[in-house]
Amino acid sequence: MNPPVEPSRPSSGGHGAVLTAGDLALLGAVLDRLLPGDGTMPAAGDTAAAAAVDRYLAESPALRPPVLAALARIRVAAAGHPDGFAGLDGDGRDGVLRSVETDAPDAFDALLVQAYTGYYSDIVVQRALGLPSPLQPTGYPAMMQAPFDERRLDRVRATAKPWRTA
């Protein structure tokens, strides 16, 4: 098993293990529409989610066909603009994604699962949620030290139906 994954920097234009530089640029733009920032949570493009998705595809070849198909569908759907998906404004990008979601639901869902996985596996996101990242060895030891107040069970002790004799 590999050591804990540290956050990698957002893609800076190079190709990934599976995805081309163009794929990664498109994926990054897509991720920002799927998971935009909102002041509390970071936008996916400000995390290492795109690089993580590329890594998942490298580790699990079975994931590649639907995810690559989704990216291809997005390219086709955005082909009406000379700059493709990147040339569209926010509403235009969302419209493209909705059309792919409708026309190729399985491929789109496969992409969405990997997008969510990459995003919520990112240290920046986890810290924004207040999680120890990773969960071990930190855990929540203070919570586990809290005593159990047995007086909470007084009513049950007094009124519960006894076990049935047999």
Partner: peptide, 18 residues
């Protein structure tokens, strides 16, 4: 190996899928 458990990784939940 105890070190192989997903909770040691930041992408722990991903391993529920595999």
């Amino acid at each position: 190996d105890p070190s192989a458990y997903p909770q040691n990784r930041i992408d722990a939940e991903r391993f529920r899928q595999s």
